[in-house]
Nucleic acid binder design. Structure first.
Lengths: 220, 220
DNA sequence: ACTGCTGTGTAGCTTTTGGTACAGACCGAC
DNA sequence: GTCGGTCTGTACCAAAAGCTACACAGCAGT
């Protein structure tokens, strides 16, 4: 954990001087790396989290140990634990992990509360963040029961691939995102490869035929 | 649609005179019945919805036509469409239906916006509602991938049963809630009946052994 | 080069779930 | 009562997904 300047706070640069002063007074910039979880179910949340750099992954762990990604938090977005713990007494039910080297701005609860009351723009950001998350979760929930695994995998590939069509992710990770096992992912991948949609490598998947994948999603 | 007194607004009774005056000026009390959907994906939302009486069901429809319940809105709770449409430009992705005769207080967007800015208590209610919904959706998402259908059905029975252990719901409805088909529900029910957990009737299920059902959820 | 770790490819087998098809039971309207 | 609709029960088959087990490939460290 490192406390440093807040110059890189992204969306927060637009705040008024008043807001920024509060931030300067109390906020911390926290650095985190991939392996260890940052937050665990039931853990106490000390403030509002804003992702500055990198990406956080919010996931659940089933009783049998398999993981499934609920959603991601990208730079400029808020973590909703904060909001859950600041405005509600619900225990937070998921795990959080940094995907890569990630910087998170941690704004202490009292400071954020004050900000929220004073600054309409903060109210707006907050409600918008929550609202967006609700939307994402609904989409995810809909996807889970409306689409089969091959379609969801195709979707994952298309969404997370770089512009060059490369996806730096192990099959184990993909399985975790989809809430399934590596073997199933491998099986589906073999199919995709056979159809010429993708090429697989160690830790990388290259998309060769995005149209094909997209078509798979449209009509099974 | 009927416009009438707002005396029964539940949580809103606690608002300041200022807030209630605004409500008196612009809000409507809308009555709706079970069969027809109230809202459809992409529909324009004209304000904030508060459920006063009855219950709303928010659900998704898959391309193949099967439904799945996302969550319910009970009396005293807010519908988040409103918030999505008032604070965000995201298209709403689900369907809404009244479960029984239901009264909904509809507060026009501009009125609610003004309320939100002036009244900290409204801010609180709003954020809390969103926050709770996020929590519920996460739980649901976790449940979907962590538990099997029999466990989820058992859970449904336990949660929705009356104090007397009666559940006035057809198997078709249960299937819709779980995102599966009636036949599967019937099959699972047969199992539950065989084990003495429940008794089935036309449109009703009676729980005989709640412990048994609960045990089913704990360890399959 | 050797070793060990991690990641991938594959082959069965089992369980779970979905789909089809049909029979019968209950209920209300006429 | 009888008709028609809705709800339930069930049998059988197909598809999807999970589980186990193992072989091998790439990569890093020694």
């Amino acid at each position: 954990m490192t406390t440093s300047s807040l110059e890189s706070l992204g969306p927060f640069r637009k705040l008024s001087e008043d807001g920024r002063q509060l931030l300067r007074r109390g906020a911390m910039l926290v650095q985190c790396g991939p392996p260890a979880p940052i937050l665990q179910p039931g853990q106490n949340i000390s403030g509002a989290y804003f992702v500055v750099r990198g990406r956080l992954r919010v996931y659940a762990i089933a009783p049998d140990g398999t993981e499934a990604t609920l959603y991601f938090i990208n730079p400029g977005e808020t973590c909703v634990f904060a909001l859950n713990s600041l405005f509600n007494d619900l225990r937070y039910p998921a795990w959080v992990q940094a995907e890569s080297d990630t910087s998170v701005a941690l704004i202490p609860g009292p400071v954020f509360r004050e900000l929220f009351q004073k600054e309409p723009s903060i109210q707006d950001v907050t409600v918008r963040a929550l609202s967006t998350l609700v939307f994402r979760l609904m989409e995810e929930l809909e996807e889970v029961h409306a689409y089969k695994l091959d379609q969801r995998l195709a979707n994952l590939l298309l969404i997370h691939a770089s512009a060059a069509g490369e996806l730096p992710m192990t099959q184990q990770q993909m399985a975790a995102h989809l809430g399934t096992t590596r073997e199933v992912v491998a099986r589906l991948m073999r199919d995709f490869v056979a159809r010429g949609y993708v090429e697989t490598g160690r830790g990388v998947t290259r998309i060769k035929d995005a149209e094909g994948l997209a078509g798979l999603i449209a009509t099974p």
